[in-house]
Design a protein around this nucleic acid. Structure first.
Length: 246
DNA sequence: CACCAGGCCGTGC
DNA sequence: GCACGGCATGGT
């Protein structure tokens, strides 16, 4: 199992594209970043933080693997899984796009928004649009880009984007409530934004895959079973569920 | 043709 | 408070 494949294109980020030669690239931080191996994240300060290099995951992995056989298998199957430290705004729009959608199409819509409303940082490579850039759009333009019923949700997120600034100082439940004041953000999308955009490791996003895992392998168990690493357990179970096509 | 995808909204009870 | 239908789009 290609470690980078799962981390960069497995559903927590939609910024990364796999190139013909097997490398991955993304436009972030006003630059085009290209990586091929995990070591490529070590030398650049932005990438170090983005890839959460300075967090020691090893202790958590041991703890998680000791919980049960499924998690043990997940840790073995996806040895270097981690939670990327992504931009709050990019995460917000990405996971609004994610609802009742699949990863491949979310990625398409992400790229389309970048090309149409972002700016070119290198020939042929476009950044994800800032709130200001995206505010040039309209319901009709968004619909023409095929975002579907999510058009008005994106419009509301643009309008209320400044609330993202207040999130870091809030308790989880308050932050969740604030995010859910944007139309189109419910509990699941809020948890993804808090996890991937604000690195709130107490988050535990429950989507259709996680629901299947919980029903099949953890009937009657509470989320607290996955303490003290709920977010990481969730990510491992998400990857496993998709891997075994639950 | 049906059903599904990193769900949420609006309505009715 | 909870259940349920509707929702755009593209893939299988």
């Amino acid at each position: 199992m290609d470690a980078l494949e799962e981390i960069l294109t497995g559903g927590q980020s939609f910024s990364w594209t796999k190139a013909e030669d097997g490398s991955y690239f993304a436009v972030l931080n006003e630059k085009v970043y290209r990586v091929r191996r995990e070591e490529d994240f070590l030398s650049d300060p932005f990438l170090r933080n983005y890839y959460d290099v300075d967090t020691d995951y090893e202790k958590a992995r041991i703890e998680i693997a000791s919980k049960d056989d499924l998690l043990k298998e997940a840790v073995e199957k996806f040895p270097s899984l981690r939670i990327l430290r992504q931009d709050p705004w990019i995460s917000t729009i990405s996971f609004i796009l994610s609802q009742n959608n699949n990863i491949k199409r979310i990625k398409q819509l992400y790229d389309r928004l970048s090309q149409v409303y972002g700016h070119e940082v290198e020939k042929g490579y476009y950044s994800f649009p800032t709130p200001e850039e995206l505010s040039r759009t309209s319901i009709q333009e968004l619909r023409d880009l095929r975002v579907g019923f999510r058009d008005r949700f994106i419009m509301d997120a643009i309008e209320k984007h400044e609330i993202l600034k207040r999130v870091p100082e809030l308790e989880y439940s308050e932050a969740e409530e604030l995010l859910m004041s944007i139309t189109g953000i419910g509990k699941k999308v809020a948890s993804c934004i808090l996890l991937f955009g604000f690195h709130r490791m107490e988050a535990f996003p429950v989507d259709v895959w996680i629901r299947k895992v919980l029903n099949t392998y953890y009937p009657g168990k509470e989320i607290s079973y996955f303490e003290p690493h709920p977010a990481l357990c969730q990510q491992y179970l998400f990857s496993m569920a998709r891997y075994i096509k639950l």
